[in-house]
Write a protein that binds this DNA or RNA. Structure first.
Lengths: 212, 212
DNA sequence: CTCGTAGGCGTACAACGTACTCCTAAAATC
DNA sequence: GATTTTAGGAGTACGTTGTACGCCTACGAG
């Protein structure tokens, strides 16, 4: 009976994401998104009640590109988790400005819930259950969230390589030396290295020896 | 020759932190901080050039309460790192609203650099060096940053226990079951459990067996 | 004394999110 | 085809934010 909506939430989110990619987080205003859609500012409020809701749509759009199906062809559960984690990183990397939004709206994303479901399945196959599985998932998520943010908001490798350069070397001997190494490490290598640490730690502490 | 400043950066930061604790992040405005200090809004700009600079002062104030000296009396390096990590968590926990700010201004905090220096020292004693040490520090920081945020911004345990309740159980079997467990786990237990994962993973992969 | 800088106030502006109102357009019902 | 129901969309306006700017005053060193 009513007139059909002429804009899908997806189109809305795409427009907002386009603005976000072009002008960054500070440029993501209701007016800018409205202009992008060639409509008046207030027209947006026909589709969202809030700026927050718009943000959530953008986050969902980004996470929506994450394939939630379990990877196949990987015997080792660690490899499968690695693939799942990489899928999220790749999705977010494609739109760096979305990073701060993902943290705030993480829990509203169905796509990320699907992702969690699959990861939980893999963890289950790995022999984890109950409380241990909760903590494993949470630990993985914590690392993922933290690592992505450090990568995009944290100047350079290490805690701000630039700042470290102008530091009294006698007070910060390790930091100075570490910065030298940090400069040569690619972000991807750093990310994977950290992920390896977490994955190693996830192995059953009762039977730390790998089947390989 | 000039008139001395009548307000130290520390007093400024304390006032801002008081506002932050009382009114939350949204309440932290230049006007609110000025009122807290019983001065005009623009008077603040005698001390900071920016709102961002004010935020950085607050973050530094919070991190300044973290004891950067290496813990003594702990034979195992893992226990010493645990203590260092807990110090940061405690400091941030005392002012939850500061969490979003810590991420943005993390790299400007000298206190956090001191903390990193100490942690690097411990990692060195643990036998890590070069690139492995960089990645270890970065991995620890990633987990720390992520875990603290999940704890404070992530509704409940697991990725939003509330949302999960209204989810089709046949599509999310693991998530539903996991949520049951998650509800019973204390945040501290979750945090420590995740930290244990990282610490286990930090152990030399060439010699995974613990001395114990 | 006086000079240079900090202290501090008040005004003003641009940009933001968004509440509200008014009119038009189009599909479903009769 | 007329009527009804809802979405579409524009325009105006308000409160709040950060902050640029200008103006005096207070004070300590020379």
């Amino acid at each position: 009976m009513p007139r059909p909506r002429s804009l899908t939430p997806d189109q809305l989110a795409s427009a907002a994401l386009a603005v976000l990619d072009r002008d960054g987080l500070a440029g993501l205003t209701m007016r800018a998104v409205a202009t992008q859609l060639r409509m008046s500012t207030m027209g947006l409020y026909r589709y969202v009640t809030d700026r927050a809701e718009l943000e959530a749509l953008v986050v969902e759009l980004v996470f929506g590109t994450v394939d939630p199906t379990p990877p196949t062809g990987q015997a080792d559960w660690r490899d499968r988790i690695r693939i799942m984690v990489h899928r999220v990183r790749r999705a977010v990397d494609a739109h760096p400005a979305v990073v701060p939004l993902t943290v705030a709206h993480r829990h509203t994303s169905v796509s990320l819930l699907r992702w969690s479901e699959t990861v939980l399945g893999i963890l289950t196959e790995a022999g984890l259950d109950g409380g241990r599985r909760v903590i494993a998932l949470r630990g993985l998520l914590s690392y993922l969230v933290g690592a992505i943010q450090l990568e995009h908001l944290g100047a350079l490798a290490g805690p701000g390589t630039g700042v470290i350069a102008g530091l009294p070397p006698d007070e910060f001997p390790h930091l100075g030396e570490t910065a030298q190494y940090a400069r040569r490490i690619e972000p991807a290598e750093e990310f994977d290295g950290g992920l390896d640490i977490v994955l190693r730690g996830l192995a059953d502490p009762v039977a730390p020896a790998d089947p390989e």
